[in-house]
């Protein structure tokens, strides 16, 4: 026992994608305020293992807020009450005696794998449809031969900071992937390197997003409010402009 917080956890348990899920309640004791939310789960899992029960499966990897792997929906918010990743949420954000409800991301395009782990490969397919600059290795010119206004470089960087965790989708009542997709479209449309494929990119990425079963955007702004990396909803406006101008001017089949 390292601390004196006692909590009640209601955790989603689901054996696999095909089975029905349900909540299971656990009491956890002796939690320290300095623990991260995932370390609190480590304590619970260690106990379950010592009781020869099956631990709770959840995704996590870097535990420093950058890989985007962790994905718990805590008390009705993706990544919990703070605007951060689950791994960077610390128990000092809770009080002893709290009941905490933990679910996986809920979206048709993110099927549950087991318990709290979901499959987000739909995001990879959106990137594969156009989220790149087509430049083969060895084709680049000198990096400084292409000056980029600092303002654009900074905006592109802020959009590129997306970690692809999917909190935006989990936060959205329509399970829309507009914030994720628009962040990549924005980053590349703001840079000179991204110009050649600009129209094709917006059209193809939006088409792929729709094909994956993500919902439509109704501008509630929940995605921006919950994004652990502060990705701005302005990116969605920028993508809409890109998409509109592409569909007006394009008559190509890609």
């Amino acid at each position: 026992m390292e601390g004196n917080m006692n909590l009640t956890l209601k955790v989603w348990r689901q054996k696999n994608a095909k089975s029905e899920g349900r909540f299971e309640t656990f009491d956890v004791k002796g939690i320290s305020e300095d623990m991260s939310f995932l370390e609190m789960f480590d304590v619970l899992n260690e106990r379950l293992i010592s009781e020869t029960k099956e631990p709770i499966a959840f995704d996590h990897d870097c535990r420093e807020g950058i890989c985007g792997m962790c994905s718990m929906y805590i008390n009705g918010h993706p990544h919990g009450p703070k605007q951060t990743t689950t791994c960077q949420l610390h128990m000092r954000s809770f009080k002893s005696g709290d009941t905490i409800t933990v679910e996986p991301w809920r979206a048709a395009a993110f099927p549950v794998i087991k318990d709290l782990a979901v499959n987000r490969s739909s995001f990879d397919r959106i990137i594969a449809s156009g989220g790149f600059v087509s430049v083969n290795t060895g084709n680049a010119r000198d990096a400084n031969s292409l000056p980029i206004p600092k303002e654009n470089a900074d905006l592109a960087f802020m959009a590129a900071a997306c970690i692809g965790c999917g909190a935006c989708v989990a936060a959205c009542k329509n399970a829309s992937a507009m914030l994720f997709t628009s962040a990549k479209v924005s980053q590349l449309s703001l840079l000179p390197q991204g110009q050649a494929e600009r129209q094709m990119r917006a059209e193809k990425m939006v088409a792929q997003m729709d094909a994956e079963g993500f919902g439509a955007c109704t501008n509630t702004g929940a995605c921006e409010a919950e994004c652990p990396k502060g990705i701005s909803i302005e990116n969605i406006a920028r993508m809409n402009r890109e998409y509109l101008s592409a569909s007006v001017s394009s008559n190509k089949e890609y």
Binding site: F132, V135, T137, N139, A140, A143, A153, A156, L191, Q193
Partner: peptide, 19 residues
Amino acid sequence: IDQCVAQGVPFARDYGGLL
């Protein structure tokens, strides 16, 4: 560095637009 910039990696830049 050339390759990464060509891919659209947003490295830090000065006001003159250079790296």
